[in-house]
Design a protein around this nucleic acid. Sequence first.
DNA 1: CAAATTTCAGTTCCACTGAGATGG
DNA 2: CCCATCTCAGTGAAACTGAAATTT
Lengths: 154, 154
Amino acid sequence: VAKTEELTPAALREKASWLLGQTSMHAHRMLIDALDAEDARPYHYRLLAALREFGSGSQAELGRHANLDRSDVVAALDELVDRGFVERSADPVDRRRNVISITQAGGAHFRKLDKILNTLQDELLSPLSPSQREQLIKLLRRVLEHQNGRSSER
Amino acid sequence: VAKTEELTPAALREKASWLLGQTSMHAHRMLIDALDAEDARPYHYRLLAALREFGSGSQAELGRHANLDRSDVVAALDELVDRGFVERSADPVDRRRNVISITQAGGAHFRKLDKILNTLQDELLSPLSPSQREQLIKLLRRVLEHQNGRSSER
DNA sequence: CAAATTTCAGTTCCACTGAGATGG
DNA sequence: CCCATCTCAGTGAAACTGAAATTT
């Protein structure tokens, strides 16, 4: 049996950016696999979550909430419209905008995906105790808030 | 001033996979930017680190250490050869193999990149105290080891 | 005129797949 | 015959860029 712990150079293993990259890549693969069973993609979940939490809105607004590029919002919403999970309609007060609203089927779909995502978190964090999980999330959130602060200063 | 903390849906903000993805993406962008100044890419650093730590070896072996796909090893090594940081030579005992060795310039290059990477870790973790940084690294490493264990069982 | 929105076309980076040629 | 290695060509997802058309 190969000792995978000794495969990776220490120079990499000790770097937070490396650990973040590896764990996040693995988590992302798990996510793709899990969503695939529902014919869904990570972008779908993000958009539906933003819609449920902030209500209907323009595509631009939605993209900012879900952290999607304006370009990718178009294509991802096309897919959600195809599946009947959201509706596009012209905004009567600002004719540049499309108003996106979530359908009933979309709400049900989101709840299903959210369950899948929650299960996935458990699997991902299974080697950690409950307090360690909280710790990890707290630390990551702090790093992320700092990053968001710095990038919005630019 | 916009409150970026309130932009993201709670459904996302509370998920470890989301936090990992966002922080790692940001870290990756920082990495790309920092290495760009040295005309280098993340793949270069990984390969050089593996070479320094495990010594000369075949490309396949190198790829396993640096976690690069066999296909990507070829192209990345081409770049490093062009820059004079590694040398390709035929393996006398196994003529399928290329033996890759790091040059003196390559060693110097690695040390420069390693400094850049270390500075970047500091910047990345700047909102955390020293003990929090250790905590984060410890927790991430534990998650990663668990992932590696599961994926090698398949 | 400046700014925002939607959309399209195209790019980059990373990871990966399939297949061919060579050799152990 | 099977397996490993190196290489090439191509795919796919995610994030992003530039520009056009429309409207505010």
